[in-house]
Design a protein around this nucleic acid. Structure first.
Length: 936
DNA sequence: AACGGGTCGTCTC
DNA sequence: CGACCCGTT
């Protein structure tokens, strides 16, 4: 793929950049790479025909990661094969089938690891699989487009036409297509990319030390492209013996590719294949004029306009035109770009949801099925909401004759126990629908759907359904990161396993996650001697951080704007790709080559007014413009369904430029508790106005599935009956208060610890609190003293011993206590800063030496505490004395905190009692879970 | 300098 | 599949 050796040759202008530097930008993404890597994780399932959506999870995680850094993703899928490339495909297919056969043979012998080896080799990304990804993208209102032919050309077009600011890919071809900003080597751990900007081409170093380097000074786009083609590209293999360097040098000498070809053949050392010159021109046409889908005009267009010498042969070679309706169907992902037949939904059961509850089916390696079932029983999930979305994405709106879905027979209630696994979590359709209906009824009054610009592929009917889905997330819930997510995280507390930790590390890009894990703390020692963790605090802190730092929803909402026609300022720029290699006319060739110098910045390319984020100040205006445009012109492009409440969004995200950090608008308002009363009213207004869409999904690696037992937010409400009526306002009130208080506790602990300057120190303090309050010694003191070095002498091994002690669950943390260096942020001293409206833009954040930091600082282990049974008993009083010497005790008892922080919310005796009851219920459940877990 | 061949990592458990 | 290394041409 691509131009071999090109990226190494451009090493000197490669810049490693942090994703946050692209905050506010729209980035087109080559979906193929992500899907292909995602396939790696489930090669066996795919090869054996088992339904899986792991590859979607993988890709969606990356999407959310971009969103997390306020990058608006625009996912681009590969389309049909170009005539120019058809030859290679059949060969690959043969190899795949061979590997599949080998894999199956190994599997039949039970040699799974070897089978997997071959299954990976035969893994292919099919349009059907892409469609699964598309379903998830639709659910989260992420812009996407399926290219009619090659994703590369489509990506190039999106940038050229101003739909996006940069392109994320692995294919060096994009540079040959003339793209300006290409990002390679997406690193999800460090949140970095390697950027190559066309404007830097002139600066390609020719230092003697760099053997690979080539000089592009004074080169035009035409020459650069000629070099790439001569050295061998996807459309044309090179003349044997000609590589990048030779092509570069020959072009320097002979100026035009024709002259080069002539020179090579005259020299006679290398044999030029017959018709090479013509093939060369065809290849060039592909790079220049390949057919792409224009989301604005809703039809296929040439990447750049063709000129007078265009002929039918060229036209066919760069991809035949496709009738606009079909072209749009393909672009939307509804039709197979190869066969033109409607895409088959290979996994109709996979129904992504926009909001992801963290569910329990975490396949913990050490957990036996016995443990699982126990855990399930201990955590019954009252069915609260269902899949209003169920038949939304299941049926493809564009396909007229979709087979009706078979309704499973309703199962008796007693079988509806919790079940958290993917397979076991399914509920019957009718059941879900009934509940859904009931749920809707209950909350109808609070919802008024606002219609917004929608694709005509989403019928009114669908729209309504979509609205109901959206609404579901907020129904009966406080407008901000409230109890739903609180409880979801409670359920998820079992993530305190190594595997899950790893997962967290991989999936969560927040440096804070690791810090926060510590903030779960021992709350009490039960009568039976077991240690209870105060999950409230733990989970809520995580929730808070997660919710605050992950503006996924915000971005996906903004991405929705993108699905509307691009702003008026976006003008098609046809620049610097106009050069054409003239046939055999030397003179013409010279003028052509002299015309555009590749090293010079393309002036028209990035006029300042171009950026939506500068030109159109607020999303409101942006939408207004889109709407007026929509009214004025018939060419409205909506590639994805809209969210039902753009108005709300307007107020939530008044101006993306002015949003200092993602923490500002997501999550519960804590200023009230923090004493900042002035701004709270204003904020509350905002929150109310967007009630329902303000709770952002976390950038989780897994895509929510409607079929799974939903919603996790009620997982701990085992004694709902503490309040007789669910509609009791106190119910909500309590949840809000509980959540806010818990979040507040997290904030306070995080920020208000006495001189807790660094996360490390903060953690130290927390540890002191833990050890001091409860005479519990860490299970492996070695770890504490050696790896951690955070425990002061004495506290790591209290002389006393209870019946239980803590066991650490390790995860990687940098010495600074950060989850990932990529997420490095300068320490913020006070929470009030977070709420300042004139904060610095994220884009200013540019960790200069990410790589250095990463290499220089070994990762360390710390983190979660779990209860573990140990032998021996003792009295627990001694250790607290020992640890008192070196800690400033911050006693963060949950109840204290709550009462202290928000008395109004907790004066109601009933509410408090209920909360406590539920808390203790949950603790029991948790204890049970851990116990069964560790016993296994 | 080009190129073929080999290895490794991708992903996740 | 790309990146990387290595030996051969």
């Amino acid at each position: 793929m691509g131009i071999s050796g090109l990226l190494p040759a451009l090493k000197s202008i490669q810049v490693t950049r942090h994703l946050s530097e692209y905050s506010g930008k729209t980035v087109a993404v080559d979906a193929y790479v992500w899907l292909h890597r995602g396939v790696y994780s489930c090669a066996i399932e795919l090869a054996t025909g088992k339904a899986t959506n792991k590859y979607v999870d993988y890709a969606m995680h990356r999407v959310r990661m971009l969103q997390h850094y306020k990058i608006i993703p625009y996912i681009v899928f590969d389309g049909g094969p170009l005539p120019a490339k058809k030859g290679t495909e059949s060969e690959r297919k043969a190899r795949r089938e061979e590997n599949l056969a080998k894999g199956k043979a190994f599997m039949a012998q039970g040699k799974m690891s070897q089978a997997r080896e071959f299954f990976i080799k035969c893994a292919d990304v099919t349009p059907e699989m892409a469609f699964q990804f598309i379903k998830a993208l639709r659910a989260e209102s992420v812009s996407y487009v399926v290219a009619p032919y090659e994703a590369d050309a489509q990506l190039a077009y999106l940038e050229l036409a101003g739909f996006v600011d940069a392109i994320l890919t692995e294919d060096s071809d994009l540079l040959v297509f003339g793209c300006q900003n290409v990002l390679f080597k997406f690193d999800s751990v460090n949140a970095t990319v390697v950027s190559i900007s066309r404007k830097d081409f002139g600066a390609v170093a020719t230092s003697p030390g760099d053997a690979n380097s080539i000089s592009l000074i004074g080169w035009s786009d035409v020459q650069f492209r000629a070099m790439a083609i001569l050295s061998g590209c996807d459309y044309l293999p090179s003349i044997p013996g000609i590589g990048l360097k030779t092509a570069c040098n020959l072009l320097k000498k002979w100026k035009t590719p024709d002259a080069v070809i002539r020179a090579i053949s005259i020299e006679g050392k290398k044999s030029v294949p017959p018709g090479y010159s013509k093939q060369f021109k065809l290849a060039e046409k592909c790079f220049l004029h390949q057919r792409v889908y224009c989301p604005r005009q809703e039809k296929l267009v040439h990447l750049t306009d063709v000129d007078s010498d265009w002929n039918e042969e060229f036209d066919a070679y760069v991809g035949s035109d496709i009738e606009p309706t079909l072209a749009k169907g393909i672009a939307l992902g509804n039709y197979d770009p190869d066969s033109y037949l409607p895409i088959k939904d290979i996994n109709p059961d996979f129904l992504p949801r926009a909001l992801k509850p963290i569910h329990m089916e975490t396949n913990t390696p050490s957990m036996t099925s016995k443990g699982k079932s126990k855990a399930r029983q201990s955590l019954p999930t009252p069915v609260k909401s269902g899949g209003g979305i169920l038949d939304f994405f299941g049926r493809n709106p564009i396909i007229p004759a979709a087979p009706p879905k078979k309704k499973p027979v309703a199962i008796p209630m007693k079988h509806q126990t919790v079940s958290v696994g993917k397979a076991s979590g399914k509920r019957t359709l009718s059941e879900v629908m009934d509940q859904d209906l009931a749920h809707k009824k209950r909350h109808r009054h609070s919802y008024s759907p606002i219609k917004s610009a929608q694709s005509r592929f989403f019928s009114a009917n669908d729209e309504t359904k979509f609205g109901s889905v959206r609404r579901r997330h907020s129904d009966g819930l406080p407008p901000v990161a409230g109890p739903s997510r609180t409880h979801a995280n409670k359920e998820n507390f079992h993530v305190a396993t190594d595997a899950e930790d790893q997962k967290l590390e991989d999936s969560e890009s927040d440096m804070n996650v690791s810090d926060l894990s510590l903030q779960g703390r021992i709350d009490e020692i039960n009568s039976d001697g077991r240690v209870s963790l105060n999950i409230e605090e733990f989970s809520d802190v995580v929730e808070q951080e997660d919710g605050y730092l992950s503006p996924s929803s915000s971005c996906s909402k903004d991405a929705q704007d993108l699905s509307s026609p691009p702003g008026p300022s976006r003008q098609r720029r046809v620049v610097s790709l106009t050069g054409v290699i003239p046939s055999d006319d030397e003179e013409e060739a010279d003028t052509s080559f002299g015309a555009e110098v590749v090293s010079s910045p393309v002036s028209v390319r990035k006029p300042k007014s171009r950026s939506r984020f500068h030109n159109e100040k607020t999303p409101l205006r942006r939408i207004a413009k889109s709407k007026s445009k929509a009214a004025g012109e018939s060419q409205v492009v909506v590639l994805v369904a809209s969210t039902p409440s753009p108005e709300g969004k307007e107020r939530l995200y008044p101006d993306i430029d002015d949003v200092p950090s993602p923490t500002l608008y997501c999550g519960p308002d804590l200023r009230k508790m923090l004493g900042d009363e002035e701004t709270v009213l204003d904020f509350n207004e905002k929150v109310k106005s967007v009630s329902g869409s303000a709770s952002p999904p976390s950038p989780s690696s897994e895509t929510p599935n409607c079929n799974e037992q939903q919603p996790a937010r009620f997982i701990d409400v085992v004694d709902v009956d503490a309040l007789e009526d669910e509609d009791d306002p106190r119910w909500q009130q309590e949840l809000v208060a509980q959540s806010q208080a818990a979040v507040m506790a997290g904030w306070k602990q995080r920020w208000a610890l006495p001189p807790a300057k660094t996360p490390l120190q903060a953690r130290r303090s927390v540890q002191h609190v833990i050890t001091q309050r409860h005479p519990i010694r860490p299970l492996s003191p070695k770890m504490t003293s050696k790896k951690l070095k955070t425990s002061p002498p004495g506290s790591s091994r209290p002389t006393t011993s209870r019946a239980f002690e803590l066991r650490r669950s390790d995860t990687n943390v940098t010495p600074a206590g950060r989850h990932s260096l990529a997420n490095y942020k300068p320490p913020r001293s006070a929470p009030s800063k977070l709420f300042g409206t004139s904060g610095n833009s994220n884009s200013s954040m540019n960790p200069p030496n990410i790589k250095q930091l990463d290499k220089g600082q070994p990762r360390r282990n710390v983190l979660l505490f779990e209860t573990v049974k140990v032998s021996g008993k003792g009295n627990g009083s001694a250790s607290s004395a020992s640890s008192q010497n070196h800690s400033e005790p911050i006693d963060l008892t949950m109840d204290d905190e709550i009462e202290e922080l928000d008395p109004t919310a907790w004066t109601d005796e009933m509410v408090t009692t209920s909360a406590r009851a539920r808390l203790s219920h949950f603790r029991c459940a948790l204890n049970f879970f851990f116990t069964s877990f560790w016993l296994c």
